[in-house]
Write a protein that binds this DNA or RNA. Structure first.
Lengths: 143, 143
DNA sequence: CCTACACTCTGTAGTAGCTACAGAGTCAAG
DNA sequence: CTTGACTCTGTAGCTACTACAGAGTGTAGG
C-alpha cells in the first residue's frame, strides 16, 4: 500500500468495516443501492474511504439498529443531504416508524400470549395428545 | 366442470383458497416446498383437493399466524405424519419457539423505548436541529 | 527478483416466505 | 362458437443482506 494511492487519511473496505463493525459485503451493497456514495478509487480500482464515509455508514447502521427500513433511511438521508431537514419532519417520520414498531410488538405479544397459555396446558408427557397440536388443528365448524 | 373429473367432494385451487383464506399462489408454493402433498389431478392436469387438504393447510396457516417458521412447521408436520408426536416433544419445540418470540419482543421493546424517549425530546418545530438525527449521528469518541 | 499472502475487484446466487405475472390451456354456459 | 372464468407452468420480484468464485493487486520476506 503506497501513500500515492491512498491519501494520508484514506483507507479501504476492510478498514471501514472494522471501524464500523459492518460486514464489508454490506458496504458494497449500500453503495450499489445508492445509500452510500461511490467512493473515489485508486489507479487499480480500489475504493478509498475517509471519515465522511465512516459517519454516513454509522448513521445507516444506527438507524437499522432502530428498525428503520432502508427506504426510511434513504428518506432521512435525503433530507439531511439537501439540508432541508426540520425537526417537525423528522419527528413525524419517526412517529410513523414508532407506530409500526408498536404494531409489530402487539402482533408478537398476541402470539406470545397464545403460545404461553397453550404451553401451560401441556402435560409434557410421552402421550400423543397435545394442547399445542389441538390449537393448531381447527375443530369442525359445527361441533 | 364435470363430475367425471372432480369426485363428489373434490374442488380446485380457488375453492381451497376461499375456504382457508389462503392466497392460491401460496398453496402452490407450499406444494412446491413439500409442505402440502401433491394433490391428485384431473385428466387435464387440474389439482383436485379434499377435506384433508383443507385441514393440513389450516394447520400450516395457523402455525404461521403463531410465528412458527416453515421449517418448524415442517418438523411438527413430520411428527404428526409419522404418528410419533408426543406432548413432551411438541412442548419442547413450542418453548424454543416461544423463547425466540420473546427475544424478538425484547429487541423491539428496546427499539420502542429508544425511539419514544428520543421523540419526546423533539421540539417538532421548523428548525434543522433534531434529537432524532443527533441520536443517529454518533458523536466523536473523544468529545 | 520471486513467491506467498492478504487484500481487493466484479458479477451472481442464495437466504425466508411469499406474491405476481406472462402465456398457454381447459371448461361450461349463452 | 365465443366469452369468461378458471387452471397450468416457469419465472421474477420483494427485503436486507451474505457469501462465493475467479481474477487482479500490492507488499513483505527470502
Amino acid at each position: 500500500m503506497t501513500s500515492d494511492h491512498l491519501s494520508r487519511t484514506g483507507f479501504r473496505r476492510a478498514a471501514l468495516g472494522r471501524r464500523t463493525g459492518c460486514n464489508i459485503e454490506t458496504i458494497r451493497y449500500y453503495e450499489n443501492i445508492g445509500m452510500m456514495p461511490d467512493p473515489p478509487r485508486t489507479a487499480a480500482g480500489y475504493r478509498v474511504y475517509d471519515e465522511t464515509h465512516v459517519s454516513r455508514l454509522r448513521f445507516i447502521l444506527r438507524a437499522r439498529q432502530l428498525g428503520f427500513s432502508i427506504e426510511e433511511i434513504r428518506g432521512l438521508l435525503g433530507l439531511v443531504d439537501s439540508g432541508s431537514q426540520t425537526c417537525a419532519e423528522v419527528k413525524e417520520r419517526t412517529e410513523r416508524h414508532l407506530a409500526d414498531v408498536r404494531a409489530r410488538i402487539a402482533d408478537l405479544a398476541r402470539i406470545e400470549r397464545v403460545l404461553s397459555e397453550t404451553v401451560t396446558k401441556c402435560s409434557g408427557e410421552n402421550v400423543p395428545e397435545c394442547p399445542v397440536l389441538e390449537a393448531l388443528t381447527p375443530r369442525p365448524v359445527l361441533a
